[in-house]
């Protein structure tokens, strides 16, 4: 097991810091469960041409947040979507990994939906999973009514796209006092059944809002029963797990499973354990905010047993 959390690996930390502050795009490629990073614009472009398809991930837009360091998350989401629209290769679809809104209010969902309609990528096919900010007070009823895939009563779903099996999991409901993110037995039973007919060669991409590994449990950054889910995924040759929630890039490789957390389009949060609590990083200088925000694009290269993951900052 390799742990590439940036606060535990000095090289990785230095690299990510540089990336976040300098605003350089990076291509992350997974080959046989090992992550390779290349700076965009060097050799990365040629590999992008091999892609059979690509998709983009955005996360944590927190529409309705109105404090430092970003009193206007609608405009930064608009910027992120424009960045997706400007990608040299048009992504097949968009993935939003949750916390669309800050307080689950209908007007906040309206704003989000309106901004998506302004963008070519947002107007196209988009897949969503809720964050804990999207399910406050109604267990996600409003979220699922507007953005749900309606495959399963619990809101989780899967689909196949050009040979890759995608699974959208819900880990922000029925949370227990003192606990972390939670999948629950019903969802785990479904996942086991959903994966059962797939051959081990099928690339699998799982996405959920909260980290699917114990990233920093003291701040709630993890999912109580993610180990069971990972147990079902271990037999596959290539598994990528995307999530949001922590508003910064962190990676971890565990056998053939690689975990990636995404930046927010609204505001950054502190590195794990830095400061008294999670929450918006208020000390960001306004003109540096964009270098902490971003989008992610993922390309699938046929026959290469790998997904190439590119981080784009909004600077």
């Amino acid at each position: 097991m390799t742990n590439q959390r940036d606060n535990e690996n000095p090289d990785r930390r230095g690299f990510l810091k540089c990336m976040a502050w300098a605003g350089a795009g990076t291509l992350l490629m997974m080959k046989g469960g090992v992550l390779h990073a290349r700076v965009l614009g060097l050799d990365a472009g040629t590999e992008a041409k091999d892609a059979t398809f690509s998709f983009a991930q955005i996360s944590d837009s927190h529409i309705g947040f109105h404090f430092a360091p970003n009193p206007d998350p609608a405009s930064t989401l608009r910027g992120a979507l424009a960045q997706v629209d400007a990608l040299p290769v048009r992504p097949d679809f968009l993935l939003h990994t949750g916390d669309l809104t800050h307080l689950s209010r209908p007007d906040q969902f309206d704003t989000l939906a309106g901004l998506m309609q302004e963008s070519r990528a947002g107007k196209g096919k988009a897949f969503y999973v809720p964050g804990e900010h999207d399910v406050i007070g109604d267990n996600g009823a409003e979220f699922f009514r507007r953005f749900g895939e309606r495959q399963q009563p619990g809101g989780w779903y899967s689909f196949d796209h050009r040979g890759v099996h995608f699974v959208g999991l819900i880990n922000v409901l029925a949370l227990k006092a003192g606990g972390l993110g939670f999948l629950g037995n019903e969802q785990l039973a479904w996942l086991k059944k959903d994966l059962a007919p797939l051959s081990a060669e099928t690339p699998v991409l799982v996405f959920a809002h909260m980290p699917m590994w114990a990233l920093y449990p003291a701040w709630g950054w993890g999912t109580d029963d993610s180990v069971e889910a990972m147990g079902y995924l271990r037999r596959f040759g290539s598994v990528s797990v995307l999530n949001g929630h922590i508003h910064q890039i962190q990676q971890k490789v565990e056998g053939n499973i690689t975990f990636y957390t995404a930046r927010s389009t609204a505001y950054p949060q502190p590195a794990p354990g830095v400061g008294p609590a999670p929450g918006p990083l208020k000390t960001v200088v306004p003109d540096r905010l964009h270098s902490y925000l971003g989008i992610r694009s993922v390309r699938h290269v046929q026959g290469k047993d790998a997904l190439a993951i590119t981080e784009g900052v909004m600077a």
Binding site: F67, L103, H133, I136, G137, A277, P278, P280, K282
Partner: peptide, 22 residues
Amino acid sequence: DEEPHTVVSANGQFAPSKALDS
């Protein structure tokens, strides 16, 4: 906090709050 929070009884002993903004 600048994050929303709720106050909810662990076993439904009292009425839950709505999302509390700052």
